[in-house]
Design a protein around this nucleic acid. Structure first.
Length: 478
RNA sequence: GCCGGGGUAGUUCAGCGGCAGAACGUCGCACUCAUAAGGCGAAAGUCGUGGGUUCAACUCCCACCUCCGGCACCA
């Protein structure tokens, strides 16, 4: 049985989830559900990233205990997967000392054993307010861009990972599509980046300044985010722990990732894997951000879109539909309530919802005879072929567009055949239409799982009559 | 500054040598099974600007204008 291992990034729990992460979850979910429908053995992982100075600060600001804060925020992400009807098989947390920590520790020791981790003096400009290091070029007239204060020059010894040792090999793998990068345009970006010179990367911080796992055999240092967070993709599937599971699932088929941190996934992560002697992920899919009315979402602008509010009001499927149809898969996409309402009304209420409703009502009144219409069936075949191609290329919006062509054709067919005239062929026309609905339900299942089920239930039939009472509208007009 | 991607209908975008396309929105017509939904039709574009190549350019080449992204240790 073919396996399919798909992951999302693990969002940082310094703030509750916003609609941007909902996008990533939903995209990953379509892939997972689609590959399950192909009878592949799918494993879909998501989780949360919970270490770091910013988390400690966010917890302090919230007045909660650190544990309370991270548990609560991580739970919000877990709830989001439920609310969005995400079919993930697992949820990993980087503070998990049973599943995650042993793997990270082993990774550290193996990397060190390979001679790829070494100590080096590091000098940096540190802002106490931000609890972060700054580069000279990011300063505003020599001061912290956030606090406008002088920075401390800090000398410390950290552990570094020999990323430079692997950069040529990584470049080659990316260039030859051994790691396939979607969209293709990003490929140049990382190759360029590598060509500008790759330095070794710091894998630890001093304990006072960074909250995380302690470096083995060094009580003064904690592990820095890269060596802690990136390995979630293997710690969750039993790296050096559950040999059978790991062997089956690794390498990942797709890592979904936002455009802000994708480069680390294409660079540091392969570096770690090469050092460990493991295969590299097959595909890195990079999505864009959600803007709101063309503006970046931010707390200070007060325009952050809370996915829970939309789900509460309209349900998961309308939000899933919007994210998958309106947002270009690998570009930034815009969210406004106007656009959301427009999509909802024109595509879901007046399109799919109305089609189901009119077919069901007529079939109920007039009757139907199970059959297939040649023209409709050939369109279904064509749509299925292109749909498959679209999904292989991660073109979620295109796949949906194709399904909606089928919906539109069905409406035309009804108009031409006018089954409400109760002609001799009306029962055949309605039978054909019910067959189309079966297919539509199947095709939308990865995108709108709940709606798919509802359609199937709505048209569930037994020879000449329906089993169920006519339901209410799938998508009431807004 | 260097590298890369865009600028096509009111809007979002597709097309990338051979009569400018789709969807949504707008307007009109006819219908009534359906969620006042669906169908048919129309209006709507100097394809960023200027030059060049070609029988033919939105498409190829050059220059320019303009918007956006990347140029690592916040994640």
């Amino acid at each position: 049985m073919k396996k399919f291992y798909v992951t999302t990034s693990i969002p940082y729990v310094n703030a509750p989830p916003h609609i941007g992460f909902a996008l990533e979850l939903v995209q990953a979910d379509v892939l997972a559900r689609y590959h399950r429908s192909l009878k592949e053995d799918v494993f879909f992982l998501t989780g949360t990233d919970e270490h770091g100075a910013k988390i400690v600060k966010a917890a302090k600001d919230s007045g909660k205990s650190l544990d309370g804060f991270i548990n609560e925020t991580s739970d919000r992400f877990r709830f989001l997967t439920r609310a969005l009807n995400i079919s993930n098989n697992d949820f990993i947390r980087t503070t998990d000392t049973i599943r995650h920590w042993p793997a990270v520790k082993k990774i550290w020791l193996e990397l060190k054993g390979k001679g790829d981790i070494y100590k080096k003096k590091y000098q940096g400009l540190y802002c106490i307010g931000c609890e972060a290091f700054y580069l000279e070029k990011d300063l505003i007239s020599g001061k912290c861009p956030v606090h406008n204060t002088k920075l401390d020059v800090i000398d410390e010894e950290n552990y570094f990972f020999k990323l430079s040792k692997y950069s040529r090999k990584i470049r080659k793998m990316i260039e030859r599509n051994k790691i396939r990068i979607i969209p293709e345009s990003r490929k140049n970006e990382v190759i360029n980046f590598i060509d500008e010179g790759i330095e070794d990367i710091s894998f630890s911080r001093s304990k006072e300044r960074y909250w995380g796992f302690e470096v083995p055999d060094d009580k003064t240092q904690t592990m820095y985010v890269w060596v802690d967070a990136l390995p979630n993709y293997i710690s969750a599937i039993g790296f050096r722990e559950n040999y059978k599971k790991f062997k089956k699932l690794w390498p990942a088929d797709v890592h979904l990732i936002g455009k802000d941190i994708w480069k680390f996934h294409a660079l540091i992560w392969p570096g770690i894997l090469l050092s460990l002697g493991l295969d590299l992920p097959k595909t890195i899919f990079v999505h864009g951000f959600i803007t709101v009315g063309g503006q970046k979402m931010s707390k200070s602008l007060g325009n952050v879109i809370d996915p829970f509010v939309l789900i509460e009001k309209y349900g998961a499927d309308p939000l899933r539909y919007y994210l998958l149809r309106e947002v270009p898969p690998t570009e930034d996409g815009d969210f406004t309530y106007e656009k959301f309402n427009e999509r909802y009304n024109s595509d879901l209420a007046k399109g799919l919802g109305n089609l189901v409703s009119r077919i069901r009502a007529m079939a109920d009144d007039i009757g139907f005879k199970k059959t297939k219409d040649k023209i409709l069936e050939s369109k279904i075949k064509e749509v299925k072929k292109n749909y498959k191609k679209a999904l292989n290329d991660f073109k979620f919006n295109e796949a949906l567009r194709l399904i909606w062509e089928l919906i539109s054709l069905s409406d035309k067919y009804i108009e031409e055949e006018k089954p409400w005239n109760r002609k001799d062929n009306s029962v055949l026309v309605l039978g054909s239409l019910l067959s189309v609905l079966d297919n539509i339900a199947e095709l939308i299942a990865p995108f709108l799982p709940k709606t798919s089920e509802m359609i199937l239930k709505e048209i569930e039939r037994d020879k000449n009559s329906f089993k169920n009472k006519r339901g209410k509208a799938l998508f009431p007009r807004i």
